[in-house]
């Protein structure tokens, strides 16, 4: 069953007097528990597609359905609620809150999603345990290695059990060995919990965890 679907998505940006068609009609479906790797050269529109699938941007035209909800491009105010309920992000730069410990980073994300108090603390603890960082729960991000930071980011993305996980170059700031470990762990967790996972990457090694590899070129999915 598709949990993420884009149909003929077009995204146009205006720069001065010029309009640039970044996405020219992209259709992509991802099933629950499926891992899709999105490859392509810089400027091909990967991150823009990820932003639209993640309800950070709205498409200029086309249709996006996330976990059964059709995204209305005219209703910006609805997007945070969809992100909150259905999407977990993992970023290239980890984007952890530097003032919060590993556990607090996960717990805060849960708080934003409406899970509060002891329940949030317990769930954050479980998420960190799942990524093997239970013993680092009180560490600030500055005291963690790159791989550990990315594992905290994965725990944060998984927290609240969103059906869709989106990762933007998750291995870009990690050495290849750590990157591989993180990827495998990410894949195992996504599979075990039946989350749809879309990974945008330049890194060919990421292919190893994919169920499907999709390549983008000039705003279109290559055949």
């Amino acid at each position: 069953m598709n949990v993420l679907e884009s149909q003929n998505v077009v995204k146009t940006f205006t720069e001065g007097r010029q309009t640039v068609d970044v996405l020219k009609g992209v259709s992509l479906s991802v099933e629950r528990g499926e891992i899709v790797v999105l490859e392509g050269p810089s400027g091909s529109g990967k991150t823009t597609l990820l932003s639209i699938l993640g309800c950070i941007l709205t498409p200029s035209s086309g249709r996006v359905v996330i976990d059964g909800e059709v995204v209305d491009p005219r209703d910006d105010r609805r997007l945070p609620a969809i992100r909150k309920r259905s999407i977990g992000f993992v970023f290239q730069q980890f984007n952890l809150f530097p003032a919060l410990t590993a556990a607090e980073n996960v717990e805060y994300a849960l708080n934003v999603k409406g899970v509060k108090g002891e329940v949030a603390a317990r769930e954050a603890g479980r998420a960190l345990e799942a990524v093997g960082l239970a013993d680092r729960r009180h560490f600030l991000p500055r005291d963690l290695s790159g791989g550990q930071k990315q594992r905290v980011a994965i725990a944060r993305a998984l927290a609240g059990k969103p059906p869709v996980l989106l990762a933007d170059e998750p291995t870009a700031n990690l050495d290849s060995q750590v990157g591989q470990q993180v990827l495998e762990m990410f894949r195992d967790l996504a599979k075990r919990e039946e989350r749809a996972l879309v990974i945008v990457t330049h890194d060919p090694k990421v292919r190893s965890v994919a169920d499907r590899v999709v390549t983008m070129r000039d705003g279109l999915l290559a055949a």
Binding site: I56, R77, P80, F89, N95, P98, V112
Partner: peptide, 16 residues
Amino acid sequence: LKEFGTVKAIGGGNGD
């Protein structure tokens, strides 16, 4: 700013 961007990305709104 980037942290606030992250707050928004994980589902927070301007109100948060």
